[in-house]
Design a binder for these strands. Sequence first.
RNA 1: GCCGCUGUAGCUCAGUGGUAGAGCGCACCCUUGGUAAGGGUGAGGUCGAGAGUUCAAAUCUCUCUAGCGGCUCCA
Length: 692
Amino acid sequence: MPQITLPDGSVKSFDDAVSAFDVAMSIGERLARACVGCLIDGVLCDLSTVIESDCSLSLVTEKTRDKKDDANAMSMLRHSTAHVMAEAIQRVVPGAMLVYGPPLESSFYYDIKFPDDRPLKDGDFEAIEAEMGKIVKEDRVFTRYDMSISDGMEKLKSEGSKYKVDNGEAAIKAGSESLSFYATGEPGKDWEDLCRGPHVPSTGRIGGFKIMSLASSYWHGDENSDRLTRVYGTSFFSKKELNKHLERLEEAKKRDHRVLGKKLRLFHIDETVGQGLILWTPNGSVIRKELQSFIGAELTKQGYSEVFTPHIGKLDLYRTSGHFPYYADSQFPPIIERDHLIEISEEGCSCSQLSNNMSSGEIEGFMLKPMNCPHHIKLFDSAPHSYKDLPVRLAEFGTVYRWEQSGELNGMTRVRGFTQDDAHLFCTPEQVSDELQGCLSLVKTIFDVLGMEDYRVRVGLRDPDSSKYTGDPVNWDKAERACLEAAATLGVAFTEEPGEAAFYGPKIDFVVKDVIGREWQLGTVQVDYNLPERFDLSYIGADNEKHRPVMIHRAPFGSMERFIGVLIEHFAGAFPVWLAPEQVRVLPISEKSNDYAVEVLAQLKSAGIRATLDQNDQRVQAKIKNGSEMKIPYLVVVGPRDAEARAVSVRAFGIAKDLGSMPLDEFVSAVADEYSSKGASSVRERFAAAAV
RNA sequence: GCCGCUGUAGCUCAGUGGUAGAGCGCACCCUUGGUAAGGGUGAGGUCGAGAGUUCAAAUCUCUCUAGCGGCUCCA
């Protein structure tokens, strides 16, 4: 006689065991029809789950009460669609072995091992979708049945898929007391799969679905294990929602920094220069310069000293730092000294010998610097330091080079040469906490000024099971504690992530998503007890003894390239006045107004505003369209009426109607104010104020 | 690096075996137009590179190269 507590606190009692669906029916038929699953004592279950004892029950419907997508419902739907897709794929490609098919945030995938002589091609999508359509139309019921561990494993073994046997073993290891299977229809008759569930009631609930793409993956995520094909798809409860989702994806593509970078001429990557090497156009350079001077001003306020260091350094420097051996594969190959090179070629030295000799230190050479720390360390170490000098804060826009895997390169967000807004702080152990907080507040200031609110903070800790970390565990503990304490002062939620630390120390990262939903690390602050040790750094304490300083690495933007890539997407290319490469464009109505237009342009320019003149032989409507497409903050139309009044007719980006007329002098100073205040005051506001 | 897809004019793309097309952009001419595309003419391409099949290749095959989506990696 189960007593079932509903989310509103009311209790329903039943004489016998009932299914969640029956409970829903007892409340209302319409509700029951809208249900796809339920939460029993907080655990997501099938709607058909039979309830035998007292519990709390929350029904999961297609939409939440405020008509939004329900995360549980969507994940059940997509998981169910993955089953339908897997069945369809096995019909189209007999011999395809299923591995693992989970739902994701807005999609799902199924990892599948295809026969070597029959790989899946995207040309197969149509046939698979057609089969999926049939299965959906048949509206087959997802039917769960459980087997004992021994019977279940026997069944899996008899089916002959090592992947499913492995999944079964994983379930047992995770503590399952039985193995559950889901048949899409009738057990023993229809297609079925080992599965933990839960699923929507039947295939007919899948209103709209689409196979999106193919990718390769590795079994257990292990590069050296079996290579699998990952088939991505998505689904919704209705076709309409699917179409809306696909439209949104199309829209997102328009904000993609690679698309906008081309359209707005912000940067260029040239095959003949090299993969992942950014050529900054004049437009992009304006943005970069503005950001650099912004951060430069903040650094001065915070007591940093700016330095410059070369792009290369001796191999030995990186042996000492530990970077050369640790990251050998992801660095550009060393530059070998000429004399060595001649010697080596005369000796007929093989490539592998050469590589060995370099690793051992027998051959000296230079490396393109993969990071700036060793150079800054050497600067710090070039003079003795009293504890009274600390902290020493050395900052540099330092360009570094890393040999990223070719498949990893991505527009401006993953490149092979990039400039970090880097700094290294050398301080006493007592100063670590304050300095960390100073670094974090700098990152936060920058994010605030740019209106970037959609980020998460990750505290990267060491993975206790891994041996990749160097240094004393006691120091690691100290450093990790310092990071966690500093993060706690941020006033922003953060996550602790073991395994995300750098090899020399823990870090606090600011992570943002791009338009496709991929995450990128921007600002980073890292505590390091390790490199000071390796380089034997010291300062003289009050006791007149040598002490080891602690290093903090920090880069508020991360890299200029990645940050601006993300920033392009953040603003969808419509930069605020202070960053906009072209701030004002002057549009004369006809040649007759050219003289006045030239005058307007001159006045804007002499106020330090980045302004241009559109003297094309086009109508003003066309000039407005062109200017809008370039996302220029202000377009000013000038004609005889404006010349007469010594005024300009202003149009602001993103506002369909023009703002009206403003005296030229006033407009110039308003734009100049908006520029220097980074948007704290704006031309629009002045118009709004004038209108009141 | 791995799997799949893609590479045609500055940009966006059409062209599936018979030696190349559109729109935008660009140049010139006409037009002198007041808030999201006025009209005309013209220039511009060894179809990513190389090899092969063929009487004939942008088109088919192979290798390389670059980009895209993932995987793996990310100091």
